[in-house]
Structure formats: structure tokens, C-alpha cells
Nucleic acid binder design. Structure first.
Length: 833
RNA sequence: GCGCGGGUGGCGAAAUGGUAGACGCGAAGGACUUAAAAUCCUUUUCGGGCAACCGAGUGCGGGUUCGAGUCCCGCCCCGCGCACCA
């Protein structure tokens, strides 16, 4: 039988050499994998008892965008990691819910549809079907009866409902403003979709346009989004990324009066307010800079400077965002006007320059060239005065500055009137208070987080449920009228008008006003895909409930999500938006929690043979091919073995054979296992050490070391082709089950069980059985290893020292008197001479 | 520039401050075989030595410690993210 198994094994690893059909009991992944996938399906093994299940555990993974290329190995890496976690918890006695769906709306799909000339309403279902087929092959414990597809009206009616809730709450608003416009995709992009000034989808240079857009007031939640992070069990890197994105900075708003005839203007509003994080350096503010778009520019520009200012403003407005944001060369022009520095009471010139951005702070700055790099550079270019107001340790007040000194923790104020010699550390507060007493400042906190622009002038998304009426103004679509169905129109190509293609579809566009019944017009923008994914985890448990987005009772039972696993590319956007939506729904009384994901872990990235995978390089791993050749169990286990899950790893094609050999050995061991005699004590000891290791590693997502431990055990078990005892093998089937579910089910069944291995529990660890009686004691002399002694586990220091000194190869290094002995019981003895 | 990761054999990688290189790939040798494949056994950080053994070794330079891949200080390199954010 063993021989047969080996013949069979050969055929599996050599696709050029067709297998002799079914005459052996060898490990045949293709056969057992389809057998168990069918059986799981007919028996409903992967269905979660949503209503009745005890100890609910919601193991969520980020749902994929169903691309035409099919499932990426990165998707499978992510899902397998989550699947192991979920299956492990099931074996620990939880009712595990592991749903999966499709994030199928969005520019990505639409662009692809345009490219291949197939309507997205036809294209997406076939992509989804292909994804589903590939996902089934991977053997995931997904409850497919509760899936979501964001493009289905059953789903997006509730996305529209979410929009209406934010509108009701005053958190959705429309505003005309500068937006990022992609000239290629012909749509507005969120700030987050602009990467280095280019469209994240097509890489085109992004332009500025002024359009009416829908925004969500996420900035109202900035502080809460920031402070709540402390309470979350998330990867530290992800939290840091969110903190940086929210970008809290504490400082002051300081008002500078415009100088009129050399003195401060008394006219209301004739002033410039700036935001600064360094109010302590105000005595060094020698000029001011406004963003070119700043409204005060018109007021301040003198006749003599008008021409230059106009030309500069024109040039800036035509500039695309790339050169605006990456061109570090300082340019600018003088407005001809002055403002009064409220600390020194001196007039200082007001300039405009594109290095000051209208969208941050107040769109104006006080320039302190002595202590800000950018201001220093600008002052040098234009010959503006540079004054030192902070001196480092040992520096005089008039020490020359050859660069900006911007340390805000050390040093002392100089040339700063009443604050002379004050340490910088506490100066911020003192100066702000002083300025505030003179009515010139107030302490404020600023955030980099902008409101979320959700409008898209595209076709492939959920229509924003608003109707415009000439008499009543914009009206929400009544909730009872949802969904506003996306019409199936042949011409969905966007054009240059800045208006969605939906506007061209007259019978859809014209609709009565829900308030007065007169002729109205639909909002033609659709919403951002991130709104679809901002709440999908709330929907899964309630799939099938047609009258509400999420059932109150089920939500209370299953949410918040116990474990969320996904890519770090969503560390900022998706996770921040989902938290925001959850907070809003919580505040409106719909949810009992305000943070959706109790625990989040980001998985790493897979590269191949040391290089990033990309279509253009042609080095993308095709999961189907590997599963055909090696089996899904080997593929899954290899993905988890090739590196630490949270760091990713290098997919080397040859490496999978090692994992396959491991499963072959397991199969063979199970086939050969005998019930005669008793299990070997040494093997049993190793078994229990392995149980401990795997049980400890899986919750930490340390899958690679868990697999290594099981391999080690198999090496011990099969050492010298010994025949294993049944009791030595059966627990390994349970340990390996989360990783390689099909082979585990098959071997479990062959071991005489009729129920699923996933309902069989988890092997119990027995510390007594695992304990080693003898240990290798490392013996060092002066910290250098000089030998090892095989000794009893609980040997005393005295006995160990005696043994060590009796060993000539150790003793010869012990020259002179022993000054000290370090003894770590069971591990190490260090003799210091 | 700022932030976050990371740098360990030929390669992917392991190591609560306690024997560096587990596990796997690859490679070399052996058993079995007419032969090959598969399987099993052995070796495999580098240098020296027949060997016992000796020396060196976790990007570089310092430090703390009986003992440092691990902790501290200062650098270098690679990856990712943000980037004129006042």
C-alpha cells in the first residue's frame, strides 16, 4: 500500500506524466478536494447558525474587487490567513461566521468595461462567477448563503439609506470647491485617490476644477477617530497611519491687522488670520504669505503690484497639482501691502506664494524665516529679513543663522520682548496666552483630515438619492422609494462636461419632486465605492432581511467584528471611513458600538522570486495552475509557510514541494497507523509540545512557525520509516485541519468519524506528557559556549557546575578562580573567571 | 524631508536578553532500483585541521550586561506610506 501511495504521489507531482486512474489509496488532492467541497456544500458544513449559534465569532476579511483577471494570489493569501483563524476558533468551540462578498462598483470596473466594450452589468456577473469558482477551489469556510454584492439593488438600496441618514444628521452637504479632476477618467477624485498628484487609477496628471460636490463631514469626527484608536487592538502600524492621516496639530490662530498708513487698521475684517504651531516664534515673523486664492489678496493688492499679482495668480490656477505640490522652488510676489505684527507692532510685508495652501489652516501664514525651513528659503530668494528668536544651548542672541533652526523642544527665546530667555519648551503656551490677552490669538487644534468628497460624475455606482426641485430645493428621496435603481443604459461613457452620464438618460433624470409633486431632476452623481465598503460588515449577518439594512438583534449578537484581516493599503481610507460611518450610525441610535473592528491585523505582501508581481512583468502567480498541480491544501499551506503572515513573503515556485511532501507524509502516516501496542513516549512528548506550539502560534497569526512545528513532528513520527501508532497521528489531523482542510476531513473520516473534523474540537495539551526529563544544558565560560551537558531537567546549580568542571574540554577554559556563576535552570550555566 | 517596516547561510526564513541559523528549498554523498523518479539515511554558516577542536560570524561603529540578532546611542542601505500641512 505504501508503494502504491508513492506511485500515486509521483503522478501528482509530474503533470507531464498522466496518473493511472484510481487504483490506489494514495494521496490524491484533486479527488479528495472536490469530494469535500461537494460534501461541505450538501451538508451545509460552512453555513453559520446565525440565529442559534453559541459563542459567536465574526471573522471578517476584506472583500475583493472582482477583477476580470480573476483571483490574485494576494487575495488568497489574505483569505487563507483569515480562514485558518476562523477554522481554529470553530475547533475551539465558537460558532464562526466567515462571510465573503464582492466590492464590485467603482471606477476600476467601469474603466475595464469601457476598455473591453462590455457593459458592466454584463461583465461584473461573469467576473463574480469566476471569482466564486476560484474561491470554492481554495476550500474556504465561507458561508455563501450570506454574501453581498455591492452592485445589487438589494445591497445598494441600503447604501443609499446610509447616505440619507448622514443627510438627515446634517453630515452630508453640497459645496462648490476646488476638486481633483482626472482628465482621463473624467471624474472627480477624493484626495486619497490622488497619489503624488496623479490619478491612482490611470496615472494621469490631476487638474483642479470647481464643481458642486457632495461631502461627508468626517472632519467633525477627527478627534474621536483619533482618540478611539487607543482603545483598539489593531496593528500599531495601522494605527500610526491613521494618526498621521488625521494629522492633529496644536497651535494658535493669530490675527494680524492690516497696516494702513503705517498703523494697524481699525476697520472690521481688515486683517489676516493665520494658523501656526509655533506662536512662540512670533517675534521673528518678518513677513506674511497668503495662498494665491486667498480672498484678502484682492483687498491687499496695491495698484502698483496689481499686474504682477494677477499674472502670478493666473499661473498658479493653471498649474496642475503635481507641480504645485512637488515643486519646491520658492516663487511668489509682493502684494504691496503690510500687516502689523501683534508682538513687535512693526509693519511686515504681505506676499502671496504657492507654497501656502488654501485648504490647510487659514490659507495664510506668518513667516518666521529664522525657524522654519520653507520660510528661510523664501526669505533668501526674495531678500527678506531673517531674525533669530530662538537660541540653542551656548548660542548668543545674535548668533548668525545659516539655516532655519526649527527645534521646538530645546533652546530659549531671544529677541522676544518680555519672553527673553524663556525656555522654548513652555513658551508656546505663554506666548499664546499673552497674545490672547491682547485679543490677537486663540489656541486651536487643526487637523489635516478633510471632509470626504463622495460624489463621482460616473455611471458605475449607486445613484445619490436626492431630487432637485426648483421650488423646494434639493429633496432626499423618501426611504420608502429606495432603491434609486441604476438604469441599464447602453451609453455609460463619461464625458468632459463634469456631469454624470446619467443626466443623458431623460426618463430616469426627470422625476416628480417628492415634496410638491412638480417636475424635478435627479441627482446624477453616484457615490464613492468607499461608501459601499463603509458599512458592508453590518449587512452580512442580516442578509435576507429585506425591510432593514441590519437586524437589531443579529447585530447585537454578531457585532462588532471580532477579527478583521486585510491589506495595509486600506489602513487609512477604508478603515477610517468604516469607523466614521459606524460612529454616525451609533450616534443616531442604530448601533450599540461605535468602533466596528475590535481587532485588526494587516497581512503582508507576497512577492515572487524576489520581485514584485505585476501583469507587465508576467510573473503573476496563477492560483488555478498551482492548485491543479499541487492541490489546494498544499497551496494554502505553502502560502502560509513562506513567511510571517503579517510581513508577507517571497513565493518561490520550487518551495511548494516541501509542503506537499509534508502532507504526503501525513497521509502515509495515517494510512500506516496501527492500533497495536502503545504510542512511543518520546513521540508523544513531541506531539504535546507540537500541540502547545500550534495552539500558541495560530492566534498570533504566526502560521509559518506553526507549520514548521508540525513538520518537525512529522519528521519525528516517521523517523526511519517507523510505523506510527494511531494515537500519535490522529491529533495531528486536527492540528493541520485549519491549514489543509480537505486532507484533514478525508483522514478524519478514514479514522472512523462521521462528523466533520471542524466539529471535533481541538487536541488537548498535556503538560506532563510534554515535559522533557533530560535537557541540553549550555555551558559557557565568560559568556562563550564551551560545551553542552545532557542533564536532568531539574539539575541544581551545584551539580551542574560539578559536572561542567569534570568535563576536560570545558575545564581547560576555566583558568584562575571562579568569580561568579550564572545559572539559568534547565538552560544554561555561565562560569565567569 | 517626515513617518512606519526591514537588513541573519546559496535561497525563503527561525530565535520570552541565555547553545544563532529551527522548519523548508536547493546542493553533495549514500541505501533501494537494471535504470531513473519517488522514498529513506547522512552532510550542508564561513575559515583552519585527519580529528578532537580552534577562530570568526546576524548591515557598519560605539555602549550597557556574566551574556546582545534581541536593549541604548550614532550611522549606512533597502521597501512602503505621506509629502511646501505652517
Amino acid at each position: 500500500m505504501a508503494q502504491d501511495a508513492m506511485c500515486q504521489r509521483l503522478t501528482m507531482t509530474s503533470p507531464n506524466n498522466p496518473a493511472p486512474s484510481g487504483d490506489s489509496g494514495g494521496y490524491d488532492p484533486a479527488a479528495i478536494e472536490s469530494k469535500w467541497q461537494d460534501r461541505w456544500s450538501t451538508r451545509g458544513t460552512n453555513k453559520t447558525d446565525i440565529e442559534g449559534g453559541e459563542r459567536p465569532f465574526y471573522a471578517l476579511m476584506m472583500f475583493p474587487y472582482p477583477s476580470a483577471e480573476g483571483l490574485h494570489v494576494g487575495n488568497l493569501f489574505a483569505f487563507t490567513g483569515n480562514d485558518i483563524y476562523g477554522r481554529f476558533h470553530r475547533q475551539q468551540g465558537h460558532t464562526v461566521f466567515e462571510p465573503l462578498g464582492y466590492d464590485a462598483f467603482g471606477i476600476h470596473s467601469e474603466n475595464h468595461a469601457l476598455k473591453v466594450g462590455i457593459h458592466p452589468m454584463r461583465l461584473i456577473p461573469s467576473n463574480i462567477a469566476n471569482f466564486r469558482r476560484q474561491l470554492e477551489r481554495a476550500g474556504l469556510m465561507v458561508d455563501w448563503s450570506r454574501s453581498v454584492d455591492t452592485t445589487s439593488p438589494d445591497y445598494y438600496r441600503w447604501t443609499q439609506w446610509v447616505f440619507l441618514q448622514l443627510l438627515k444628521r446634517g453630515l452630508a452637504y453640497k459645496k462648490k470647491g476646488a476638486v481633483n479632476w482626472c482628465p482621463n477618467d473624467k471624474t472627480v477624485l477624493a484626495n486619497e485617490q490622488v497619489i503624488g498628484g496623479r490619478c491612482e487609477r490611470c496615472d494621469a496628471l490631476v487638474e483642479q476644477r470647481f464643481l458642486e460636490q457632495w461631502f461627508f463631514r468626517i472632519s467633525d469626527y477627527a478627534e474621536r477617530l483619533l482618540t478611539n484608536l487607543e482603545t483598539l487592538d489593531w496593528s500599531e502600524t495601522t494605527k500610526t497611519a491613521q494618526r498621521n492621516w488625521i494629522g492633529r496639530s496644536d497651535g494658535a490662530r493669530v490675527t494680524f491687522k492690516v497696516a494702513r498708513n503705517g498703523v494697524a487698521s481699525t476697520v472690521e475684517g481688515d486683517e489676516i488670520t493665520v494658523f501656526t504651531t509655533r506662536p512662540d516664534t512670533i517675534f521673528g515673523a518678518t513677513y506674511m504669505v497668503l495662498a494665491p486664492e486667498h480672498p484678502m489678496v484682492d483687498v491687499l493688492t496695491t495698484a502698483a503690484e496689481q499686474e504682477k499679482v494677477t499674472a502670478y495668480r493666473d499661473a498658479t490656477s493653471r498649474q496642475d497639482l503635481v507641480s504645485r505640490k512637488t515643486n519646491k522652488e520658492k516663487t511668489g510676489v509682493f502684494t504691496g501691502s503690510y500687516a502689523i505684527n501683534p508682538a513687535t507692532h512693526q509693519p511686515i510685508p504681505v506676499w502671496i506664494a504657492d507654497y501656502v495652501l488654501m485648504e490647510y489652516g487659514t490659507g495664510a501664514i506668518m513667516a518666521v524665516p529664522g525657524h522654519d525651513e520653507r520660510d528661510f528659503e523664501f526669505a533668501q530668494v526674495f531678500g527678506l529679513p531673517i531674525v533669530r528668536v530662538v537660541a540653542a544651548e551656548g548660542e548668543g542672541a545674535d548668533a548668525p543663522l545659516d539655516a532655519a533652526y526649527s527645534d521646538d523642544a530645546n533652546g530659549r527665546l531671544v529677541n522676544s520682548g518680555p519672553f527673553e530667555d524663556l525656555p522654548v519648551a513652555g513658551a508656546r503656551q505663554a506666548v499664546t496666552t499673552w497674545l490672547a490677552e491682547h485679543g490677537a490669538a486663540q489656541a486651536v487644534t487643526n487637523y489635516r483630515l478633510h471632509d470626504w468628497c463622495i460624489s463621482r460624475q460616473r455611471y458605475w455606482g449607486p445613484p445619490i438619492p436626492v431630487i432637485y426641485c426648483d421650488t423646494c430645493g434639493p429633496q432626499p428621496v423618501p426611504e420608502s422609494d429606495l432603491p434609486v435603481v441604476l438604469p441599464d443604459i447602453p451609453d455609460f461613457r463619461p464625458d468632459d462636461s463634469g456631469v454624470s452620464p446619467l443626466a443623458r438618460h431623460a426618463e430616469w433624470y426627470h422625476v416628480p419632486c417628492p415634496n410638491c409633486g412638480e417636475q424635478g431632476r435627479r441627482e446624477t452623481d453616484v457615490s464613492d465605492t468607499f461608501l459601499d465598503s463603509g458599512w458592508y460588515f453590518l449587512r452580512y449577518p442580516s442578509v435576507g432581511h429585506d425591510t432593514e439594512p441590519f437586524d437589531a438583534e443579529l447585530t447585537r449578537k454578531w457585532l462588532p467584528v471580532n477579527s478583521y484581516i486585510g491589506g495595509n493599503e486600506h489602513a487609512v481610507l477604508h478603515l477610517l471611513y468604516a469607523r466614521f460611518i459606524t460612529m454616525v450610525l451609533h450616534d443616531m441610535g442604530y448601533l450599540h458600538f461605535e468602533e466596528p473592528f475590535t481587532r485588526f491585523r494587516a497581512h503582508g505582501l507576497i512577492i515572487r522570486e524576489g520581485a514584485k508581481m505585476s501583469k507587465s512583468k508576467g510573473n503573476v502567480v496563477n492560483p488555478d495552475a498551482f492548485i491543479d498541480q499541487w492541490g489546494a491544501d498544499s497551496f494554502r499551506t505553502y502560502l502560509m509557510f513562506l513567511g510571517p503572515y503579517e510581513e508577507g513573503g517571497d513565493f518561490r515556485d520550487a518551495g511548494i514541494s516541501g509542503v506537499r511532501r509534508f502532507l504526503d507524509r501525513l497521509w502515509l502516516a495515517a494510512e500506516l497507523a496501527t492500533t497495536e501496542g502503545a504510542p512511543d513516549q518520546g513521540v508523544l512528548r513531541k506531539l504535546h509540545q507540537t500541540i502547545a506550539k500550534v495552539t500558541n502560534d495560530v492566534p498570533r497569526l504566526s502560521y509559518n512557525t506553526a507549520i514548521a512545528a508540525m513538520m518537525e513532528y512529522m519528521n519525528v513520527l516517521r523517523k526511519g520509516e517507523r510505523t506510527p501508532h494511531r494515537d500519535e497521528v490522529v491529533p495531528v489531523i486536527q492540528l493541520v485541519a485549519p491549514f489543509a482542510p480537505h486532507i484533514a476531513e478525508e483522514l478524519w473520516e478514514r479514522a472512523g468519524h462521521s462528523a466533520s473534523v471542524f466539529d471535533s474540537g481541538w487536541p488537548t495539551f498535556d503538560a506532563d506528557l510534554a515535559r522533557e526529563d533530560e535537557v541540553q544544558l549550555a555551558v559557557q565560560v565568560n559568556g562563550k559556549l564551551r560545551g553542552t551537558l545532557t542533564v536532568a531537567r531539574d539539575i541544581t546549580q551545584e551539580a551542574a557546575l560539578e559536572l561542567a568542571l569534570a568535563d576536560p574540554s570545558i575545564a581547560k577554559h576555566v583558568t584562575g578562580t571562579i568569580r561568579k556563576v550564572i545559572f539559568v535552570p534547565g538552560r544554561l550555566l555561565n562560569i565567569v573567571v
